[in-house]
């Protein structure tokens, strides 16, 4: 019984972590149609920046925010310098973002070395929480709470604000949006900032669970892909549901069949592809 309760809570926490990872990827992919394969690299960069700032005794949430903003600004530069010229050239975007992710991974290895860097959770959140008589690491519930807060904020931003309406207009019909006076390229910078910001933020918030280590990028990118393919490309509800499904499979998979956990992770994706290729919440893409 204890196994099931603890693993279920772990699954929820992992789901939250996966949502923080994949929301930005889904946003950029869905709204800009750019497959940002540097997303795992941005997540790792956020984790390393966070570890460095926390090493300097900075407040945890301030460090998370600062790392997110720094990674977000890097994202804006990437979009403006490299990706804007490649609009519509998917293969080019793939190669360039992959190239960027290799450079980020290599530079992180050079700057931070090969040993994992731990990120400490805020001291007040470290004590275990008792649920139904079982001790459970309190920070994991905080991750879940952060993910839900981000989900709500993103939904409000996209559906209830003027900026969100402009973004949706720019995505549906770029020419028409330009015609009515929306500065589409500035809008795209904003979306890229938001996506990269979420990656950096997720890297720090997930840090106390994952820590920052070389290869974190390559571990996380496939997870983001699976979540997004499963949930449906470009759909935020899809990313949320997909994250919790994959989080549960990841946890129970590693507990029940440790050798095959990584492979089991991809089974729901395969299943969904065979039954409904657009993903659970996806729309038909071109």
């Amino acid at each position: 019984m204890q196994f099931w309760i603890v693993q279920s809570l772990n699954s929820l926490a992992m789901g939250g972590l996966l949502f923080l990872l994949s929301a930005g990827f889904s946003l950029i992919f869905g709204l800009l149609r750019i497959p940002n394969l540097a997303h795992g690299g941005l997540f790792m960069l956020g984790a390393y920046l966070g570890a460095t700032l926390l090493g300097g005794q900075m407040n945890f949430w301030l460090a998370a925010l600062l790392s997110g903003v720094a990674v977000g600004l890097l994202g804006v530069v990437l979009e403006a310098v490299l990706l804007r010229r490649l609009a519509g050239n998917e293969q080019g975007q793939v190669l360039v973002t992959l190239g960027v992710s290799f450079i980020i991974a290599d530079l992180c290895l050079m700057a931070f070395g090969g040993d994992p860097m731990p990120l400490g959770a805020p001291r007040s959140l470290r004590p275990p929480v008792f649920i139904g008589g079982f001790a459970f690491p309190g920070y994991r519930l905080v991750v879940l709470g952060c993910a839900l807060a981000v989900a709500v904020l993103l939904w409000l931003l996209l559906e209830r604000t003027r900026l969100g309406a402009m973004i949706r207009a720019g995505v549906d019909d770029r020419e028409m949006a330009r015609g009515v006076g929306i500065k589409v390229s500035r809008l795209f910078s904003a979306v890229f900032f938001l996506g990269a910001f979420l990656a950096g933020l997720g890297g720090v918030i997930g840090g106390p669970i994952l820590s920052a280590y070389p290869g974190l990028d390559a571990d996380m990118l496939p997870l983001a892909l699976v979540v997004v393919i499963l949930g449906g490309v470009g759909s935020l509800p899809g990313a949320l549901v997909g994250s919790f499904i994959i989080g549960a499979i990841y946890n129970f998979g590693s507990a029940l069949f440790p050798d095959f956990a990584y492979v089991v992770l991809f089974l729901p994706m395969v299943l969904v592809l065979v039954i409904k290729p657009t993903g659970l919440f996806g729309r038909v893409l071109r």
Binding site: L82, G92, V96, G99, S101, F102, I103
Partner: peptide
């Protein structure tokens, strides 16, 4: 790996 990444960017651009 840095060089490989740079090659990607240069080739595409």
């Amino acid at each position: 790996y840095s060089l490989l990444g740079l090659t990607f960017i240069v080739v595409v651009s």
